[in-house]
């Protein structure tokens, strides 16, 4: 806080000005989030229920569902994403303006869920960066609202000082897998769901499931 990217103090009263500016900007940003509902399956129905009268997303300044990605702040990916839909999701993410956040709603979007099959993306974090994962199959509307509030909390802690770092985007990477080959393999490897019960039950020898970053030096 109070320093710019090069680490030098800003002019004037740096700490005070940027903190207050951060506060105002983040307050404005987090209380008028416009979600882009990328609803595909069951979770989309719960998303509709969240927007309807009983749960009323409007209480959080999020009732304005923006079906155009260019005017949206939060991508809510609700439901399973097959490989055939992957380029569409990636394109929608690329079309959204900065600052933008992404919520992966439900088990299928977060990890593939029960659909460990040939046609399904095993977690949208292989395609777009995800800020908040909401577990559940599907998550209840309260879960979605809590996830959106976590995005708000995340925004509250952001600072303009490291804006360039937080909001960096490589235009050349558009349309490319966000995760590298090894990471995709690790993220999507057999994780012990019921199609691989033999591995879990120890009947077939297998290595422990690890992500590449998790390995100790």
């Amino acid at each position: 806080m109070g320093v710019n990217q090069s680490g030098l103090p800003l002019l004037g009263s740096p700490a005070f000005v940027t903190t207050r500016l951060d506060f105002v900007v983040n307050w404005a940003r987090r209380n008028s989030l416009w979600p882009m509902p990328f609803g595909t399956a069951c979770c989309a129905i719960e998303m509709m229920a969240s927007a309807a009268s009983n749960f009323d997303l409007a209480r959080f300044g999020m009732e304005r569902m923006s079906f155009s990605p260019r005017q949206a702040d939060v991508l809510i990916c609700a439901g399973r994403v097959p490989y055939k839909l992957a380029p569409v999701l990636r394109r929608i993410w690329d079309q959204m303006m900065q600052p933008k956040w992404c919520i992966s709603m439900g088990a299928c979007a977060s990890s593939g869920g029960v659909f460990d099959v040939y046609s399904m993306v095993q977690g949208i974090d292989t395609i777009v960066p995800v800020d908040v994962y909401i577990p559940g199959c599907p998550p209840r509307p309260e879960g979605l609202i809590y996830g959106l509030m976590m995005v708000q909390e995340k925004i509250r802690r952001e600072s303009l000082a490291n804006h360039a770092e937080l909001r960096a985007e490589d235009p050349l990477a558009a349309g490319r897998p966000r995760a590298g080959d090894q990471e995709v393999a690790d993220l999507t490897g057999p994780f012990g769901n019921s199609t691989d019960q033999n591995r879990v039950s120890g009947l077939v020898a297998t290595d422990a499931v690890r992500r590449s970053e998790d390995r100790l030096p």
Binding site: T40, R80, P82, K84, V88, S119, S194
Partner: peptide, 21 residues
């Protein structure tokens, strides 16, 4: 096909009661 989740293939790997979900 933008939501093809291969239920029918997955069912062949499940027992009869496991297909209900």
């Amino acid at each position: 096909g933008y939501l093809h989740s291969s239920f029918e293939k997955l069912g062949e790997y499940r027992t009869w009661n496991q297909i209900v979900p």
